[in-house]
Amino acid sequence: MKGSAAVLAVFAAGILAGTQPHLPSFLSQPALSLYALYLLLFLVGVGMGANQGAWETVRRLNWRVLWVPAGIVVGTLAGVGLFSLLLPDMTLRQALAVGAGFGYYSLSSILITQLHGETLGVVALLANILREIGTLLLTPWLVQRWGKLAAVAAGGATAMDTTLPVIARYAGSDTAIIAFCSGVALTLLVPFLVAFLL
């Protein structure tokens, strides 16, 4: 929760700076964001490649566990796809791209901003932060009412790090292992799926 608050604070500080008339011009250069994005993607790749524990956990597990993230992908896209019918100014493709962040708000919102524009980038940032915050707040209820996998499903990509502790606490350590694997699989998928959808 502290992390999402910090992200929103930085984003709000940016908005405030953006409304100032005497802004240093380099800050609004599109090329700056683009090169920072390339750097971020490279660093995300380094983090994935170096994460030995994650790869080993996935390898040790029964491959059937991958049905869980597969279900989350299908369910998420179906959910946002249906919801987009209620939004007259959003196309199916745009809604699917927002959903394909699976809660990984930093990378998905930045990618969507670059590939599509800042309006959809803002929606992606808020929707995916809300997915993380929603999971943190609702996990006790979700587990009780809808079963252990519901917390893993709600968490999406965040189930490997930020929402993992709360999932472990309320759904148990067996589910936490599944949550971790599912989160890793979804995290790996996010950049590819978002870029493919837009």
Binding site: N62, G71, I72, G75, L86, L126, R131, G147, K148, A154
Partner: peptide, 29 residues
């Protein structure tokens, strides 16, 4: 964003309930 977020969570919870029914016992759920 709030609507999309809730729709994403509801959809994925519904889908994983089907997954749990199909593979639940085999992965120890």
């Amino acid at each position: 964003a709030l609507g999309l977020s809730l729709a994403a969570m509801a959809g994925s919870i519904a889908a994983t309930r089907i997954v749990a029914r199909l593979i639940g016992r085999r992965v120890g759920l």
